[in-house]
Design a protein around this nucleic acid. Structure first.
Length: 716
RNA sequence: GCCCGGAUGGUGGAAUGGUAGACACGCAGGACUUAAAAUCCUGUGACCAUUACGGUUGUGCGGGUUCAAGUCCCGCUCCGGGUACCA
């Protein structure tokens, strides 16, 4: 091996490599970005502007090497199903086979990836991506012009156009044929941009009878369509259309037209599973193909043209060698700059600092530092590990501490990180695990997505949005201030253009931080998207006020024996809040506290023990009010060090249960009965009740269901 | 197109298959006040009654299972999110 070959080989095995790549470039941010950062409409996740493709030398991380591990690990996580699905889809595992097609007149094979090798008999043509490496070789001289023109036209299209025009397929013939390995038939090779260069081998076999895209293409360019699966339809006309290649059949069916005496293969009559197994075995035995797993996930573009970002400790030398700085030369720090903005050139602002940039080694060899910096994900990929031991200046963290704290028990964050931070950091963590640096295979055991808080916005009859400052409310209805037309209240994301942004500072100055906090928890379930409503803040503000006024008034607090009903309610509240905190159901916990305060207010007084206990359960929700009440109630220390109160089941025990009595499932009246009664006793008492007699009348109950401490249902 | 969620009063939302609408907002009426704000009390799904702690109906739509369905099953509709020539 030459030195260059060696470097190339080693680079091909590295997780990180430096290469020319067609990458996403955001002209507004003047930086490149990762696939994961491009939204589905071609906009940059960070700034919302359109991104374009650019060929640049960049750092890449081989996340696909971990695709299988990242996929398998998902099953072990206690994460929302939606996020798990999104990661699975992004990784995009599909199983199939790579099949070699011999190109006529050339001593070269064209390899395709297919998930359905069993449909080889239906492959009537092939398509390669315009960027395919063999395109020049394959194209015959007669077709050079049209193919070159097509390649040029495609390259001018932005990626967005390429997918936008998805409905109307384009393509040209290369003039070349390949042999279908199952029947040795010659099939034409086409170029079309509906085949993508980055997935599989960048070439496909087309089975137009059973694939919509291929069907559409074959119809447009009059390519043969051979049906090889017996369609399971009752409509005779439809069946005829499918069998004659005039309609696409994408469901499964028993094979037909799938045998060839020269190759000796016969799939006819088999089902899909058997067919795939048979053909794969045959392909492998003839050395024509292998089973293969493919992933959608691509290498992760890991450099940006920003000033703020970790610099790569890498030097590019004048002789072409690229070296990594020694450990004792680290950390590499960013230089002070006059101008921090990226230039037009596509190079990072670090290239402006001559002093920092240029370097000479002890042999006088000149070098240049890497000017790209790492993306923000670099920090978020391991911050949770550093948090374990942030002041350690010897090691990333102390191993014992890492063992104690990891994995993260509960991670609360937004769903927008599904295939960004949450995928990236899992990848880093697995690499660190393989290196023996961390002790767990996964970083975040339980993930919880909090819902987005929306705000009210206003919409006119025609559906156009009206800015919040142009709206006035009259008698519960909304009107346009200028035109006076009635508007519809809707909920929408907070945005500057809709002028519906709620500033937490304003809420805090008006109602206090406790109210803000409490309302956010009271609005509804944590994981649900819901609108901010200032009226709701008033509600919890009122609750805090009532609580504070009642508890801080010495006339309401006494020492002695607590009222039984209060005691029961207090212990019920402790139990409820306790469980609700554990399950992140803050809204119902707060509701329980409101019920307690309503009762206490009604009764007029509580013991100081009760007051102190209630203050403890209130304080995680309203820490300011909690702390202040704690001191008003006579303490000098801080409430934050108090242990969480226990509830006592004794106080929760009921002697009676108020049975709902139903007739045919319809609740008619309640009857309070001791919990100690047997079913028969209950039935006896209920039937004797005159209200029951009213509903039964002359009829005779055919069945009576008694569920202890729950319900009585009389079936007539 | 495909994959996930979701749909309950005027509003946000409660409800281990067992009393639908807890709690809160809003609204209505009342108390306090010269008045307002604040606070407190009462009522509040809809409909029919109002002689009654009265009846009917009701959890997006259509079916089903069950003594009993907002909850489970089947088939839809609409809304939100993700993803898409991935072979």
């Amino acid at each position: 091996m030459t030195k260059n070959e060696k470097v190339k080989y080693i680079d091909s095995k590295r997780l990180a490599y430096y290469d020319n790549a067609l990458v996403w470039w955001c002209p507004s941010c003047r930086t490149v970005c990762a696939n994961e950062e491009v939204l589905n409409d071609g906009l940059h996740e960070k700034c919302g502007n359109r991104v374009e493709k650019k060929n640049l030398k960049q750092w890449m991380l081989r996340i696909p090497l971990y695709a299988e591990r990242l996929l398998k690990g998902i099953d072990t996580l206690d994460w929302p199903a939606g996020i798990k699905d999104m990661q699975r889809n992004w990784i995009g595992r599909s199983t199939g086979a790579e099949v070699d097609f011999e190109i006529a007149g050339l001593n070269v094979n064209l390899t395709v990836f297919t998930t359905r090798p069993d449909t080889l008999f239906g492959a009537t043509y092939m398509v390669i991506a315009p960027e395919h490496a063999l395109i020049d070789l394959i194209t015959t001289s007669e077709y050079k012009n049209s193919v070159n023109n097509y390649i040029k036209a495609t390259s001018l299209k932005s990626d967005l156009d390429r997918t936008d025009l998805a409905k109307d397929k384009t393509g040209v013939f290369t003039g070349r044929y390949a042999f279908n390995p199952v029947n040795k038939k010659q099939i034409p090779i086409w170029v079309a941009d509906y085949v993508l260069t980055g997935y599989g081998t960048g070439a496909i076999m087309a089975v137009p009878a059973h694939d919509n895209r291929d069907f559409e293409f074959a119809q447009k360019f009059h390519l043969p369509i051979v049906c090889i699966q017996d369609p399971d339809v009752t409509d005779h006309e439809q069946k005829k259309r499918i069998l004659s290649g005039n309609e696409c059949w994408t469901e499964d069916g028993k094979y037909i037209n799938s045998a060839d005496s020269s190759t000796g293969i016969n799939l006819n009559g088999q089902n899909k599973e058997a067919g795939i197994a048979l053909i794969t075995k045959w392909l492998e035995s003839k050395n024509l193909g292998t089973s293969k797993v493919n992933y959608k996930i691509r290498d992760w573009l890991f450099s940006r043209q920003r000033y703020w970002g970790e610099p790569f400790p890498v030097i590019h030398w004048e002789d072409g060698e690229v070296t990594v700085m020694n450990d004792n030369e680290l950390p590499l720090e960013l230089p002070e700059l006059e101008n921090y903005l990226p230039g037009e050139s596509g190079e990072s602002p670090l290239s402006n600092s001559e002093e920092w940039l240029n370097i000479t080694d002890k042999n006088g060899r000149k070098g240049r530092r890497e000017t790209n910096t790492m993306p923000q994900w670099a920090g978020s990929c391991w911050y949770y590990l550093r948090f374990i031991d942030p002041k350690n200046d010897e090691l990333i963290f102390n191993r014992e501490k890492e063992k104690y704290w990891m994995p993260v028990d509960l991670y609360i964050g937004g769903a927008e990180h599904a295939v960004l931070h949450l995928l990236y950091s899992r990848f880093w963590h697995k690499v660190l695990f393989d290196l023996g640096i961390v002790s767990t295979d996964e970083p975040y055991q339980r993930l919880f997505n909090q819902g987005m808080i929306l705000a009210f916005a206003y919409e006119s009859e025609s559906g156009s949005r009206v800015s919040g400052d142009l709206v006035e409310e009259r008698e519960g209805k909304y009107f346009h201030k200028d035109t006076g037309t009635e508007l519809k209240q809707i909920t929408a994301k907070m945005s500057k253009s809709l002028k519906n942004v709620v500033n937490p500072d304003d809420v805090t100055s008006k109602y206090g931080a406790d109210s803000l906090r409490l309302y956010e928890m009271f609005m509804g379930p944590l994981d649900v998207t819901k609108p901010w409503d200032e009226k709701g803040v008033k509600g919890v503000f009122g609750f805090l006020g009532r609580t504070f006024r009642f508890m801080s008034n010495p006339d309401n607090i006494f020492t002695g024996q607590e009222d039984a009903e209060i005691l029961k309610s207090l212990h019920y509240t402790i139990k409820k809040v306790d469980g609700d905190i554990e399950n992140l159901r803050f809204n119902t916990g707060i509701s329980a506290m409101m019920i307690f305060i309503n009762l206490a207010t009604k009764k007029g007084r509580i013991t100081s023990d009760t007051a102190l206990t209630f203050t403890k359960i209130l304080s995680p929700f309203a820490p300011h009010a909690g702390e202040e009440l704690w001191q008003i109630l006579g303490n000098t220390n801080s409430l934050s060090y108090e242990p969480w109160p226990d509830f006592n089941e004794e106080y929760l025990r009921e002697d009676n249960f108020n049975y709902p009595v139903s007739f045919n499932g319809k609740m008619r009246f309640n009857i309070e009965l001791p919990v100690s009664l047997t079913k028969d006793e209950i039935i006896k008492i209920v039937l004797a009740d005159e209200r029951a007699q009213k509903w039964i009348g002359a009829a005779k109950p055919s069945n009576i269901i008694v569920v202890p401490n729950r319900i009585v249902n009389i079936v007539i």
